[in-house]
Design a protein around this nucleic acid. Sequence first.
DNA 1: TTTCAGTTTAACCATTTGGTTAAATATATC
DNA 2: GATATATTTAACCAAATGGTTAAACTGAAA
Lengths: 211, 211
Amino acid sequence: MAVKHDEVKTKDRILKAAIEEFIDHGFDGARTQAIADRANVNKAMLHYYYASKENMYEQAINTVVTAIIDKFGKIPAVQPQIEDRIGSVMDVYVDIFTDYADYFKIVIYEAMRGGRILKKVLLSNNLLHNINIRNFIKYFDDQVSSGKVRKVDKVQLFMSIVTQMLPVFIAGQILNEVVDVFGVKKAIAEKFIKGRKKFVLDLIMNGIRIK
Amino acid sequence: MAVKHDEVKTKDRILKAAIEEFIDHGFDGARTQAIADRANVNKAMLHYYYASKENMYEQAINTVVTAIIDKFGKIPAVQPQIEDRIGSVMDVYVDIFTDYADYFKIVIYEAMRGGRILKKVLLSNNLLHNINIRNFIKYFDDQVSSGKVRKVDKVQLFMSIVTQMLPVFIAGQILNEVVDVFGVKKAIAEKFIKGRKKFVLDLIMNGIRIK
DNA sequence: TTTCAGTTTAACCATTTGGTTAAATATATC
DNA sequence: GATATATTTAACCAAATGGTTAAACTGAAA
């Protein structure tokens, strides 16, 4: 077997280039020639290693989805204070919405085209066991039992935590445009994002009503 | 002038068809032939009335953005109870995320491609005066003054209200897939969406802490 | 009924796109 | 160095795509 030993293997360079191209343009907007250029290889190499654009896309989705879901395992399982626990969930999502924003963007692109590939990837590789909302629910039940917090729907609460962190992702994508269009000062917008976690944590714990 | 009087004018049929095609496939995935088929016209008619795919796309974005922004004007300006006021904001967004979900999808597609056209459309037609977050802020300030609610960042609060309604949109796009992939029962998922507004309103007002 | 601007059609076109192939080149093993 | 296998390249291809054109058709006004 005549195996070449490059610094980074051609096959991997192509996949990385493909992911970048899909991030920027989605499946339909991506061009195989552009992927070849990004990877600095002849276009025929894409066919050699991945056979088709669609197959390359599936590998790309698999890679990014695996990376994102791995992050979910990073939520510290045990924490005494409910604020800390909710804060940890927020931290993980803030991390994903910043460090993995590009990967998350591909996933949204894919979901909008129908999500056929996403579904396939999620159902294989039993990736889902890492999305441990069950841990959160169990923890929350304990807190309710011990009288720390009142009883509310736990799935609804979890969704509230996650969705309220979405501005972090959205800002990363279109902050400059929002600044332009709405005439908000950039420093103000950045301060808004920086203070997001603290605000949401306070809102979830205390609400706005005066008692 | 020999003007034809169809039930629905060809030009309008084409734009409607284009919007549908862009909803389903985004700009890059949309096919001019598919638009012609949807509108039941010869492909040359697209060129006759709209000159290019890009121009057609710009008209489409203009139409859907105008429709969505008009909805923002529907928030009742005056309401005595803060719960009602927040509820009204939620209602408007729930309406947009259900009745205008397809339009909203185009806007997301466009934002993900960079939002150049979206920006152009928003900056022309002074569409933005309808997005009256200022009204909400003024109202909220009054409520704080009169001791009804405690003082929190108003923009943060507004974003919390809006983002927490996003599951309504997401469900409309991928509810069936979520049911498949995560093995949630469909009735449960639908109940979750139905109860979303009530839950979020309660959470925002009262938080989860026991005092 | 002639006129003429507005509308529609079929056929056509240049370019782009994803994909393919045969030949050339590199590399490990013997 | 010979051999076999893996890798890479340039050239090529069919299909699809957005766009164009000349000619035909339509209907209201003169």
